[in-house]
Write a protein that binds this DNA or RNA. Structure first.
Length: 376
DNA sequence: AATTCCCGCCATATC
DNA sequence: GATATGGCGGGAATT
């Protein structure tokens, strides 16, 4: 239970100070994923998620929207989503890539230039009577705010997809959010529009990062922060495409309070922050059945060994530092793969799936603490 | 000073 | 008319 181990405090750290990190979308997303990354078909209710994760409902919308954009979730009805799992990512990305290529999303190679001509994909609008005016004499805003479905056009979801398309199409693998915003937006957008768009990209980048689809780094020369795609590259080329980057994270701890709905920015938590390792790298473990929380896991017991699996992670205020769930009992990746391999029709998709399996293996062996495999 | 991005007001869409 | 969604950007935390 809530060990009074308030002493877990990270070394030289301030005791109880409001920390932005523990309230980040990325962390919330990690918790969300670990909470629902299960086989159970249980529909996900927004209210339920909000209360379980201890956040206001508004935040759930943010997460859910980007997760849906990548196929992990599917909106089923009002206030209800269904879990599709990580296994749905490859297909979703493949579609995004094709869609992106169909558009101009690849025509912005190397340096600048080449807008991407936003405009949503298919002519989704139910005609809506006339109107085919693409865009009048470059008249920006106003006069269209009325009855337009700008809603969807400015949604986090679509932005997410476009951001992802940037990586999937084209060969650049390092993009700064500002560049992305500039590309996805017209070229001549002024500050305000830009700033807002970048803010949204930060949000998106955080959740995509928590899924390890992207990673934050710095541009070799510029030292400027930028993001790199970690998922698989669009086409199924041979070699090169780095699949996963495993940085320092080794023990996963779901630290941070789960119920903190009410505390303002400059308030200090009544509790201590028990987190030690920030991000939770729990991704490609999709359909793995059980996971057990434990310390130095011995992935030696290949057989079932129905280890008591405390399915529910308690990422409460003080997540037991020892908590470290690892997938176990699933060692035969080949069979696992065949068991869960979606029935992809095209060879391309099969390849994509293969890449993911590769990532899972890597991730698994890393977490299992076997040998620090280090990828390039 | 610059960058990152949480928080929640409040416009819209739906029920 | 109530409730569900979710833009949007101020401004505080971080770097």
């Amino acid at each position: 239970m809530t060990l009074s181990s308030s002493t877990i405090q990270e070394s030289a750290s301030h005791h109880r100070t409001y920390s932005r990190k523990q309230k980040s979308l990325g962390l919330l997303c990690s918790n969300f994923l670990s909470l629902y990354n299960r086989d159970g078909v249980e529909p996900i209710g927004l209210d339920d998620a909000a209360s379980r994760l201890g956040v206001e409902r508004r935040r759930i919308y943010d997460i859910v929207n980007v997760l849906e954009s990548v196929g992990v979730l599917a909106r089923k009805a009002k206030n209800q989503y269904s879990w599709k799992g990580f296994g749905a990512i490859p297909k979703a990305l493949e579609e995004l890539r094709e869609e992106g290529l169909r558009e101009n999303f690849h025509t912005f190679d190397s340096n600048n230039s080449a807008k991407v001509d936003d405009e949503d994909e298919r002519f989704s609008n139910p005609n809506t009577g006339s109107q085919q005016d693409k865009s009048n004499p470059s008249s920006k805003l106003n006069l269209n705010v009325f009855f337009t479905d700008n809603r969807r056009e400015k949604s986090l979801g679509l932005l997410t997809q476009n951001f992802v398309k940037l990586f999937l199409c084209s060969n650049v693998d390092l993009i700064s959010l500002e560049e992305a915003a500039r590309i996805l937006l017209g070229d001549g957008q002024n500050s305000s529009i830009m700033r807002t768009k970048v803010r949204r990209l930060y949000d998106i980048a955080n959740v995509l990062s928590s899924m390890n689809l992207i990673e934050k780094t710095n541009q070799t020369e510029n030292r400027k922060p930028a993001f790199r795609w970690l998922g698989m590259r669009g086409k199924s080329e041979n070699g090169s495409l780095s699949v996963l980057n495993l940085n320092e994270s080794k023990k996963r701890t779901f630290g941070t309070e789960i119920t903190n709905i009410s505390f303002k920015r400059n308030k200090m938590a009544s509790s201590v922050e028990g987190n030690s390792n920030q991000n939770t790298k729990m991704q490609w473990q999709m359909q793995v059945k059980h996971e057990n929380l434990e310390n130095g896991i011995e992935r030696s017991d290949f057989e079932k060994g129905p280890k008591q699996s405390s399915k529910s992670y308690q990422f409460g205020p003080f997540a037991p530092v020892s908590v470290q769930d690892t997938v176990r009992q699933v060692r035969d990746w080949e069979s696992l793969a065949s068991t869960y391999r979606p029935q992809y029709h095209s060879q391309a998709l099969r390849d994509l799936f293969a890449h993911y399996m590769e990532a899972w293996k890597t991730w698994y062996s890393e977490v299992a603490g076997k040998e620090p495999i280090q990828i390039s």
